[in-house]
Amino acid sequence: MMVQITSAQAAILAVNSIALGGLLFLLSAGFSLIFGLMRIPNLVHGSFFMLGGYFGVTFLDRGVNFWLAALLSAAAMAVIGGLIERFLLRRLEGQILPQVLLTLGLAFIIADICLMVWTGDPWQPSPPPELRGTAQAFGMFFPLYRLAILGVAVVIAIALWLMVDRTRLGAMIRAGVDDPVIARVMGIKVSQLFTLIFCLGAALAAFAGVMGAPYLSVYPGLDFEMLPLALIVVILGGTGSLLGALVGSFLIGFLYNFGQAMFPDLAYVILFLPMVLVLVLRPQGLFGRVEA
């Protein structure tokens, strides 16, 4: 059942894993913050990724610069995310089941609208011209773009970390994740904070969707392929923990690529195994805190 791979293949897989890990981090960082801070199981997060990707390919189709397309898509999704949070989720604060059903319903709606607008065919734009080549190392060629994804993810990870760790906003977020009740009592404007985080999460997911488009392409069903990945990243890393999301993302990136190459039949099971282990041995996640 196991497929042997050469070291050259392994190197390529490693690069792909890192690229996927980067994308997953962008996706799950927002998911984790929304989950950790607002206690909302945002099942529409995978749809943000897919819809963002579709926005991106549409902009690219019109000749917009790649990075600008990614930023525009992120901005559009931030607005959509904000509207969803303000007008739909806000009314259901603290009610888990309705929130789940609402986000699930929105995910189905977005999926079908995307199918209508962008058809069932996959869209795979070219990477930006400056990143189309390959990089040579150890006598092998690596696609430059996939390495670039990693670079962008690292930059954003550092920016997020600085925001959470060093700013007033970050202090409020941390307080909110630790204890929402206390945060409220301390006079933190939780409501605005929630909207902001939801917009940020949506924007990051959309940005990741555009970044991922030249690599994964955008196609119907991408939403519900990405959502469970974000989910296991968060279960693995612990909710509300950026470090956890980072480590979890790359772990899943590697498991996904190597699993699929080496155990094609069981790739999906292998992907979920660490999650099962974490649940049994350390239910709060690798970097999650125990709730008092």
Partner: peptide, 13 residues
Amino acid sequence: NLVLGVIFVLIIS
């Protein structure tokens, strides 16, 4: 799926 989604949102709301 669209109908399913709309029903969800309507019922919840």
